[in-house]
């Protein structure tokens, strides 16, 4: 006898409670709404520079970041708004940063690709592809040498796999048995080049070749991402060295706001949207009796309020003073 849909959902939800999933759902909806608003504000000229939206990939950030402890460190790529928000950076501070304002999480000096909050262990978006992979090894090395059980989560895209630093970092991490979770968000395109045209093999095989455990998970399924990251985190905390996760995902928008998207068909995007992570979780929670339309409307309304407030906050925040241009180039005892 085939299992009922409710039973299937129940199995899928195994090990998760309602509060946890409500949080995941809210964070994913918040990130999506935040990103949509960013796109809107970019077209209005409020946000400038390069803007890489995370829409479609929310399950990766929410599933992975929620598996960490407060003393863990995170370094990520330049499509970093979702990771920042999932780590607990206030959307006000992220939006103000995109506006280049003084209350931004980087004081208006970093912009979209360079978000930081050291107090939360969120040590940056990195806009040189794969440059942060060796940094993660060093962060893991520091945790190990200081004899903490902390670890580094290193998020990067499939585009980073072709860089030499990917290979140097994986090798070093295994050699030194550093606690690093390498988390590859494979969204199938390195800008406009299809993944299959830029790598001669499969990503987890590369990691396995360096002798670390490597898995590939459905990056459109927040629960699968979360379970895999929990496994990786436990591995690192047990002192067993690095762990590699590939999350198969998809970005709904172009590489950046400047992308005319000549390299893929609308059908492909629509097909990916049928696997949408938010819809997926909504359906599971509804079948489990943990969500109904009214409850979802509340989640969506709350996210909307938070995003609107972030915009208002960013609008009201002052520009950095021109007199600060030369401040904090190097750290000196006087500027502490």
């Amino acid at each position: 006898m085939a299992a009922s849909p409710a039973a299937e959902a129940g199995e899928h939800l195994d090990g998760f409670n309602r509060d946890q999933l409500s949080l995941f759902l809210y964070q994913m909806v918040l990130i999506r709404r935040f990103e949509e608003k960013c796109g809107e504000m970019y077209t209005k000229g409020k946000i400038r520079g390069f803007l890489h939206l995370y829409t479609g990939q929310e399950a990766c950030a929410v599933g992975a970041l929620n598996a960490l402890a407060p003393h863990d460190k995170i370094v990520t790529h330049y499509r970093d708004h979702g990771h920042a928000i999932a780590r607990g950076l206030h959307p006000n501070a992220v939006m103000a940063e995109l506006y280049g304002k003084v209350d931004g999480c980087s004081g208006g000096r970093g912009g979209s690709m360079h978000l930081y909050d050291a107090s939360l262990g969120f040590l940056g978006g990195y806009a040189i592809v794969a440059a942060h992979l060796p940094l993660a090894v060093g962060l893991g090395l520091a945790a190990k040498m200081q004899k903490t059980d902390g670890l580094a989560l290193c998020i990067f895209g499939d585009g980073g796999v072709g860089e030499g630093e990917f290979h140097e970092a994986l090798n070093l991490a295994v050699l030194w048995q550093t606690p690093v979770v390498f988390f590859c968000e494979n969204n199938l395109y390195g800008m406009g080049v299809p993944f299959g045209a830029s790598l001669s093999t499969e990503i987890p095989k590369l990691a396995a070749a360096y002798n670390m455990p490597a898995v590939s998970v459905d990056g459109m399924d927040v629960l699968a991402v979360h379970r895999a990251t929990q496994e990786a985190v436990a591995h690192c905390r047990a002192g067993k060295g690095p762990y590699f996760i590939e999350a198969m995902t998809y970005r709904y928008r172009g590489h950046s706001m400047a992308d005319p998207e000549l390299y893929r068909l609308k059908d492909e995007i629509e097909a990916a949207k049928r696997r949408d992570a938010i819809e997926h979780l909504k359906a599971d929670m509804t079948l489990a009796g943990w969500l109904d339309d009214a409850a979802y409307e509340e989640v969506a309304a709350r996210a909307e309020r938070v995003v609107e407030e972030a915009v208002a906050f960013a609008e009201a925040s002052p520009e950095p003073g021109l007199a600060t241009l030369h401040d904090r180039i190097t750290k000196e005892p006087a500027n502490g």
Binding site: P134, G138, L141
Partner: peptide, 9 residues
């Protein structure tokens, strides 16, 4: 890069 990370850590 690992040195930078270790210093950040």
């Amino acid at each position: 890069g690992a040195g930078i990370g270790a210093a950040m850590g």
